[in-house]
Nucleic acid binder design. Structure first.
Lengths: 151, 151
DNA sequence: ATATTTGCTTGCATATTGCAAGTGCAAATG
DNA sequence: CATTTGCACTTGCAATATGCAAGCAAATAT
């Protein structure tokens, strides 16, 4: 449906072509930090994404290979969206956004607490969360993979 | 014109409300890495931003206090756009995006070279570029400040 | 004086987003 | 086993944002 066209060969520009919008990184956030993995869970996020936008973002994230769509192990009515390595590799970016936001926004107490933890040892935080996410990936990736659209 | 409304109290969401679009970070990039500082220079970027979009982004970046609009020291026909500390503080985010892009894109040789340099000592790279940018700020910030719109 | 540069603004076509209301299949309920 | 509910979307349409081309006023160059 949507084409993945690069506007230039600049790495920032190319990255923004993939996740430079108001929603994509929030879906990634939900998967990384809140263990969300289904359409319904993403819909419930505080920001209130519209259903059609969510569907379109999930599709483009899948096309960009940041997420994988799998059959849900416990229900045929659901699908399970999983992060890929490529998305997990975005963790440093997301952490740095947090640190920036920490400097310039008034964040809620629980967020501040988490950021404080990050600041203690950034690399360690990233490494250990990445490891954890990869463990989750392995646990589910072994199951059925949904058709990868090729239109 | 555009309102700076937060969709939620999440730091990622709040950040995306400011620079979560296809153009804002590219303008910052041009200022950080290519010493661009005027409307005309931003217009010439490889990605080809439309004039009205550029005007609107410059305005919203100014409202978000990521840039400052100053009178140009050498010409009354021009304005000089300057990064603020708040924008310079985004350097780690932009560097991490580069590192991510380095892993997953085919980047041009000159970009690869720069990234290699970054990888040698990330913190040092950020620190020294930040210092350099702050020096530029000081050099120009002392001049006339243009009216801050308050509508 | 006249032409050109600069930083926009304005109109209008097109694309993206947002909202509300479906739709089809799976699973739970009676 | 018929009906309702849950889930993952799709569809239609209005609102907003983007993109393109042209225009415009002030400043500078010729």
């Amino acid at each position: 449906m949507e084409k993945l066209k690069k506007r230039s060969d600049c790495p920032i520009s190319g990255s923004l072509d993939i996740f430079g919008d108001k929603w994509s990184l929030l879906i990634i956030r939900d998967m990384m930090f809140f263990q969300k993995s289904t359409y319904g869970e993403f819909l419930k996020s505080a920001e209130g994404i519209a259903t059609n936008i969510l569907a379109s973002r999930l599709q483009s994230l899948e096309e960009a290979k940041l997420i994988e769509k799998l059959d849900h192990p416990n229900s045929k009515a659901k699908f399970l969206y999983n992060l890929t390595q490529k998305a997990v590799a975005l963790l440093p970016v997301i952490v740095e956004i947090h640190l920036w936001a920490d400097k310039y926004f008034d964040n809620p107490a629980d967020v501040k607490k988490k950021i404080k933890e990050v600041k203690k040892d950034k690399n360690e935080f990233i490494k250990s969360l990445a490891k954890q996410l990869e463990k989750q990936m392995e646990a589910t990736t072994s199951s059925n993979r949904t058709s990868i659209n090729t239109n």
